[in-house]
Structure formats: C-alpha cells, structure tokens
Computed example of a mutant assay.
Amino acid sequence: MILARLSSAIRTQNWFAVALEFVIVIAGVVIGFQIQGWNETRQGQLRVAEALERLQRETEQNIANLRVRNDNNAARTADQSVMIRVAMSGEGTPEDVETFERAIAQLMYFSAPPIQEGSYRALEQSGDLTLIDNQELISALNYYQGAVIWIETQHGSFRAGLTTFTDTLNEFVFHEPTDDPLVTHARVDLDLLIEDPRRQSALVQMARMHAIFGQYIIGLEDQTAELCERLALETGRPCEVPS
C-alpha cells in the first residue's frame, strides 16, 4: 500500500506526500530496529538473571561442601596431633594407638577442594558473561576464580610433595586386608619408626602440609561465602546454604 501511494504521489508530483511516505518508511525501520534491540537486550537480561540464580545456588552448595571438608579436616588435624605425639614418644594408650594408625592411613589421602564450577563455565562459554554490566560483580567473579585456580595449583604442589614421602612411609607402615575387600588396615611398626629420626621428621612434614592446606580451605570457604552474598545482591534472594 505504501508503494502504491508513493507511486501515485510521484506521478502527480505531490512531493510533500512523497517526503511524508519516506519519513513513514524510515520511522518504521528505525522503530523496528529499536524493538528488536529492546527484545535482544531483554532476552540477554533474562539469560543473565537465570545464570546468576544458578551460579548462586552452586555457590551455596560449594559452601556446604567446604564446611563438611573443614569439619573433616579439623578431625583429621586432631588425629594427626596424636600421631605426632605417639611417633615422638613411642608410647600411647590403646586409644592413642588406634588414632595413630588411623591418622597414618589418611596421610596420603589428599583430595582436591570440593568446588563445583559448572554454572560459571557455562556462563563463560556461552558468552553471557559479557552481558553482565555490573563491573563490581565481574571483579568479584574474576577474583574468586583466581582464588580457586590458585588453590588447585597448591593442591597439585602439595600432592606431589606428599608423594615424595611415600617410600619413607612404606618403611614402617604395612597394609593388611580386612573383611571389606575395598578397605585395608594400616599397621604401623612403631619400634621401626622411632629407630630413625628421619622417619619421624617425615611424619611431621606430612602433617604440616595437611595443616597448611587445611587453612587454605578455610579461607576458600570465607571467600565463597563473600561471593554468595555478592550474588544475593543481584538476584534479590538471600544466600541460603543447604544443611
């Protein structure tokens, strides 16, 4: 219809009508682009809002997992204190010896921090991370990711360090089968251990490495909680850590 009116206006040399039709066409195109832009912006905002909600829930679960790890680390540290005391003195109550052997068996178990990052990776890979216009939030996310990467690097270094003590540990620790085929019992030759101060020193160093890395995990829990509170400002939902 617009083309028909435009052709008619040109034939009759009604230049005002021609100009008016051009203005109408151009305005329609501009408005169409604006509406498309608004829709794309709105869709991007919805994607980011959904992604931040998923990221907050993932962060809440990470806090819960880190709390469990820190509780376990505290119990392990207490066992290792008994382990060091028995290793240095060569004496202990039956309960101390049981704790001593349990601590010995756990020395080489050194798992990575229980952190999930699927939501952040999905946000990053989809490109939706660039849709976040809050620079403070971007800085908080980048800072946290840097902290996680550093922890993972330290885990690899500490894990390699513990492996160097494996031969020393094998000199006085013997693994015996139990009724459970998946579980072995660590029997420690205490007399053989205390014969050589270097073996005692190895235990001390291993326990020290566990304690240091345990402090890193405590710090990571605090940083994760800070990120959760920051995300809560964006989502409008309080940070709720599952029990």
Rank of each mutant, 00 (worst) to 15 (best):
Q200L: 05
Q205N: 14
C239Y: 00
R69L: 10
F22M: 14
D180M: 03
L203G: 00
E171T: 09
A74L: 12
E226F: 04
E171I: 06
N72S: 14
N142M: 12
R159I: 01
L220W: 01
G92E: 06
P181Y: 03
Q80C: 05
E171A: 07
S126T: 14
E176P: 02
R54H: 13
H210I: 04
A160I: 09
W38K: 05
I212E: 11
L227S: 01
I31M: 09
R187S: 06
R85Y: 09
T99Y: 05
V30K: 03
T164R: 14
E234A: 09
V29D: 02
D222F: 08
R69M: 11
D128Y: 05
D133W: 10
V173L: 12
V25R: 01
I2T: 13
I218W: 07
F100A: 05
S8W: 12
T130C: 08
V25H: 03
I24Q: 10
E58C: 02
G118P: 02
G92P: 07
G37D: 12
L203T: 00
A160Y: 07
R5I: 05
V173I: 13
E91T: 13
T163H: 15
T235A: 00
R199N: 05
L66W: 01
F158D: 09
E152K: 14
E117S: 14
A105F: 13
N39Q: 14
S157W: 14
N39S: 11
T168D: 11
V188K: 00
A9G: 03
E171W: 06
V241F: 10
E91H: 09
V68T: 11
S157N: 13
A207F: 01
Q13C: 07
Q205L: 11
D189C: 03
E229G: 05
Y143T: 15
N73I: 09
G127M: 11
D79M: 13
Q200C: 03
T41A: 09
R121N: 13
A202C: 01
T224Q: 00
I217E: 04
V82Y: 05
S119C: 10
I35H: 00
T184C: 03
L231R: 00
I115Q: 00
L129W: 04
E101V: 09
A232I: 01
P113S: 13
V241Y: 08
G32Y: 03
R237N: 06
F22I: 13
I35L: 13
I10Q: 11
E234H: 08
A202M: 00
E98V: 12
G92Y: 04
L20I: 07
V241E: 06
A64V: 05
A87Y: 03
Q34T: 13
D71L: 14
G236A: 03
S81H: 09
R230I: 09
Q215L: 10
Y144W: 10
Q223I: 03
